[in-house]
Design a binder for these strands. Structure first.
Lengths: 141, 141
DNA sequence: TTAATGTGCAACCATCGGTTGCGCGTACGC
DNA sequence: GCGTACGCGCAACCGATGGTTGCACATTAA
């Protein structure tokens, strides 16, 4: 949180092409836009733009050496970004699991209701009115 | 992997606004574009577009009920997306840790070299030439 | 039947990823 | 020392996309 907003970190790292640039830079340790672009499917300018974004996000730092500019990753910032992504992923996974359980429960209840309905009509109607979660949940938002 | 590419999943979930729509939809379980837009800082049309993207990515499914369209999350697909994000985050965290260790090692070596240089010149030169990792790694990309 | 409400479609704007083209500064070969 | 080659930065442009407004269509409700 020292330099830019966490939102900027996310935006910087969410872009697939930027991820590739970052990966490549990680593999080389330190590199210029030109050498990076040589191993990527887009031009030097595009790489430079991506590096600029990453720089603004604090994920890399630039070092001038003569006529070329060496970029290097900042591990601490990258780690922050990774944590943010992991947190988001965790939240999503939790939400998914929660809803999965809920849907399974609904399906099970529906099936049970159908079976009961075939056996005893009055009891089936009673269960349906009291226990169907779909109705109640429409209110919790 | 059943429906669209994993890339599409990522793209769908990477967008911050789309994440908000998804979060809200998760909280409500099932909702129409209009009701979602009522609790979001953008218009119904924008929400509808996001839902369309999420639909194409298989993350939500639409159910028509009269004149309104109810959207609901598909937990299995959301879980897939979460896994993809978590994997990416893990990779990033690993890379960050690796480079962090490496940089620490470099710093330590540099310091040791300076100290040695003050004491014995030849030994310092030998260590520097043999153990500096930055040079060797320039080739592995 | 008419008014209200939810959707879908189309045009439009800003931003962004990516390109090409050009000018400038630095390094290198003669 | 001078010209050439290389790396960089800037600007213009293009297509996709997030977001808007406006309108037409359908369904529901009075």
């Amino acid at each position: 949180m020292s330099e830019p907003a966490e939102d900027e970190l996310w935006a910087a790292v969410a872009e697939p092409s930027r991820r590739r640039v970052l990966d490549l830079l990680l593999a080389r340790g330190e590199a210029t836009p030109t050498t990076l672009a040589a191993q990527l499917p887009f031009t030097r300018q595009a790489v430079a733009k991506h590096l600029a974004v990453l720089d603004r996000a604090g994920l890399v730092e630039a070092r001038r050496s003569g006529r070329e500019v060496l970029y290097a990753v900042r591990p601490d910032r990258l780690d922050e970004a990774a944590r943010a992504m992991a947190a988001a992923a965790r939240q999503m996974a939790e939400a998914a699991a929660r809803w999965d359980r809920r849907l399974v429960a609904i399906k099970r209840l529906a099936e049970a209701a159908r079976k009961d309905e075939a056996a005893r009509e009055d009891q089936a109607a009673n269960r349906d009115g009291a226990a169907r979660p779909g109705e109640a949940d429409r209110e919790d938002g």
